[in-house]
Design a protein around this nucleic acid. Structure first.
Lengths: 350, 350
DNA sequence: ATGAAAGCGCTAACAA
DNA sequence: TTGTTAGCGCTTTCAT
């Protein structure tokens, strides 16, 4: 049973020998460092080409960089995250950096392990998407590796923050529903396993803003909230709980489109139609929300722009920036057919 | 402007000093290798604990393993892939291995770079999901790194293959549609950028089977195929092309649920309803297909099982298995409300 | 402008 | 059973 023949990798020494120069020269050419004559550069490049040399990332990691950006992804099913990754990859294209992703869920345990895994692998920078670990741990990591945190409104001296103006976004949704005439508006939120500061997490901000706007409109008596998770299952479970109440809410604001989809399932199972019986709104304006058979009112936040910015900030930090930065995108409401005035029974989505 | 203080990592030497033993001893304990007394093991473990030591992956990579499995993901938006990852992660949990993912699309160029990135980072094993690179390149990679290819029916001596019985799956769909009375059944397929052998790729098998079954039922005159891609955009574009034909197809078999969603959008835009005007079927039975507002007839393949198996096969290969293996799951049809007899106008989905 | 040589943290062959 | 030591491929002083 043929033992695997691992052909020895071409090393910098092979290239040097082939080009008749020193390994130092090759290394310099590779990093386009200062102090190489054009002649030598050409010979080395030719040798690299001929031998099909590729730098050994682990060896590089021992001394310098790995040219790797680690991305913590809490959940592969959230259809909003690919937008962020598109932006990041766009920014990284053309550089020598590669994004690798690790799944940080479900659970805080898994998230902690995933982050450790990135640190152990000596990535040059980390993008954490909506982490649930506590601030203390985040700062510990950020002290070792340039870090950008996406989704937390926490301000920190050691990492950069990129987020959406979740307060505005939630306000847009709730005002929209109130404007349509709803009073019994329920909310499906996300209950983190971890210890993020209540006010810092995006889901906490969306929930708090929902409550604030309700109060401002004298609806403090009607604040049913189901805290589950921003996921299909969470939305399903949350909607079931909310629908069991009496009187039933006439509208549901799900804190994320993924949860809204689950809520939709629960609504259908209960024989209720949207928006005739219950209006439904989400957040993230994912592509699914736009699907005409779903046509979900949602909040658009520019995920690609957030990803692009996160990439830029990471590269800047890797190049040595020490100060920290916050970046916020402004969301907009995208009304669709899933929301309508209460009791507007004729209005079924087609 | 505080320049970042990178606290020096705790190394194996620190642990050794702290425990009053040699680095070898520590290394052995870490790898639970043969030849350490329980007493020493305990002292070392205590020292590791006290110092918060974590092995440096890059240093390990120089000599031995990285304990990293690389996953090539062609597309983050395909809702079927998370099922595979769940299976893989389940298998890897409890081992020292970590899965990292790289995005291999869009385009063969990007895929090639993504695979290089994994090889450069010395992963111990690679899981390639539906790669489009040619067989030659796959085998080159597999000769260097234990590899499992998911989705290709290519048989190879150097890598393991995990796939669904796509021939059966496609047959189930087409027979189902024919059984409902359809004759003008169209297909939306995937046109790979790369050079996979025509017959080996899962999309090619689904398309070829579609044609075969159509022929077997004397429908060789009615084989409109749109080759775009297995994605929302691809499905949309494909459906638009198919709907422009005259006479219009009465049913569409999209080779993947993601494409079916795009087709659904095109159908709605054209003012057609499903299944009254056109029946629609997908493949993969993703969670979205089950959503009642979509209720898409689809083919279920057990992605989790495929992922679990891929993980197992990789670990086996890493442990030294040299022979190669194929694993196939059997798909089942899941009929839903998106398919119905042609012209059954009363039958709108609720 | 070029090259020699000292490590980076770890593993494994070998000695004791 | 335990420890000594020679690298793994690369970057980076420091000479030349």
């Amino acid at each position: 049973m043929a033992t695997r023949e691992r052909p020895r990798r071409v090393t910098i020494a092979d290239v040097a020998r082939h080009a008749g120069v020193s390994t130092t020269a090759v290394s310099k050419v590779l990093r386009s460092a200062y102090g190489v004559s054009p002649a030598m550069r050409d010979r080395v490049k030719a040798a690299i080409e001929e031998l099909g040399y590729r730098p050994h990332a682990a060896a590089r990691a021992m001394r310098g960089r790995t040219f790797t950006i680690g991305v913590l992804l809490p959940d592969l099913r959230n259809p909003f995250f690919p937008d962020i990754l598109d932006g990041l990859n766009e920014r990284l294209a053309g550089t020598d950096y590669q994004a690798i992703m690790v799944q940080g869920g479900p659970g805080t345990e898994a998230e902690a392990r995933a982050i450790e895994a990135l640190v152990d692998r000596q990535v040059d920078g980390i993008l954490m998407i909506a982490p649930e670990l506590g601030r203390a741990r985040l700062e510990e990591v950020a002290a070792q590796v340039p870090t950008v945190v996406l989704g937390l409104h926490e301000r920190s001296a050691v990492y950069d923050a990129v987020h959406d103006d979740d307060e505005l976004g939630a306000e847009l949704v709730v005002r929209h529903l109130i404007g349509l005439g709803h009073r019994r508006i329920a909310h499906i939120g996300h209950l983190p396993g971890g210890r993020v500061r209540a006010s810092a997490a995006l889901h906490a901000i969306r929930a708090a803003t929902y409550e604030r706007v309700m109060r401002e409109h004298g609806l403090e008596g009607e604040i049913p909230v189901a805290l589950t998770s921003y996921s299909e299952e969470g939305g399903y479970e949350g909607a079931r709980r909310l629908l069991a109440r009496s009187p039933r809410p006439t509208a549901i604001f799900a804190g994320a489109d993924s949860a809204a989809l689950g809520a939709l399932r629960a609504l259908h199972e209960a024989g209720l139609s949207v928006p005739a019986d219950v209006s439904l709104a989400g957040y993230d304006n994912t592509r699914l929300a736009a699907l005409s058979s779903i046509s979900l009112t949602s909040v658009d936040q520019d995920g690609e722009e957030m990803g692009r910015t996160a990439g830029r900030l990471l590269l800047e930090r890797i190049e040595g920036r020490g100060s920290s930065v916050r970046f916020s995108v402004t969301p907009t409401l995208v009304p669709r057919r899933s929301t309508a005035p209460p009791g507007s029974s004729g209005e079924r989505a087609r």
